[in-house]
Amino acid sequence: MVLTYTNEIFDINDLNLWYADHHALKSIHFPIIKKEVTAIIGPSGCGKSTFIKTLNLMIKMVPNVKMSGEINYNGKNILNSKMDLVELRKNVGMVFQKGNPFPQSIFDNVAYGPRIHGITKRKHLEEIVIKALMDVALWDEVKDRLNAPALGLSGGQQQRLCIARALATKPDVILMDEPTSALDPISTLAIEELILELKEKYTIVIVTHNMQQAARVSDKTAFFLMGELIELDETSKIFSKPEDERTEGYITGRFG
């Protein structure tokens, strides 16, 4: 199961992670290809959320975390202590389980990142906000009320706003940690369609509990179990003839 590619944006080698004494990720090797959607599936507690949080080092917020190995992002190992977190997270955006807009206006939410990263001209900010909102297909719904509070939007709209907020800092990778688990089927569909559009321009890594979702949106699928990467392959292959019997057991619903 060794895959080699030339257009990798992330190249993860022998990544190990411990929460105090608990070995949560075990020697992970994982290439992530540019402008593809990579889905990560696996039962609860398998390490999939932990893994996605290592890619922008949000995992460092958890106390007592230790890591070893390499996470190469565009050829640079981000586990190197000299890594600039601000720069990394500008380029590797993240969308969370529940839409978590700031208690500010819709405009301010999207403008938040660029504004603090130094863009002050109103005109320029407006361009960024409009473009980000158009990219997530929210512009038509909110263009008349950009100054209304973001918390007044519906759950699905809030989640799309959060994606727009992540897009506004001009990342090249977007990490999504179960982005639709709190949404109704129609909003979920909207987000899935959005993912398919966004992959034209962005690399997307999505953690999901929903195997149909992984099958619908992703190019590659990775199956995690007990902190190990069991299988990583073309999505069509994982869901038709997986090589490992544990993968097969999981996707056919025998456990998990």
């Binding site: 949000m58 997270r89 529940k98 978590n100 603090i116 800092t169």
Partner: peptide, 27 residues
Amino acid sequence: VPRDLKEASLALGITHWHTIKTILLPS
């Protein structure tokens, strides 16, 4: 203040101090 707000801000590449100033204190 809900932890997601802080996470959301940090994940945008905002520094700890700016997160405190612009998200945590106003909330």
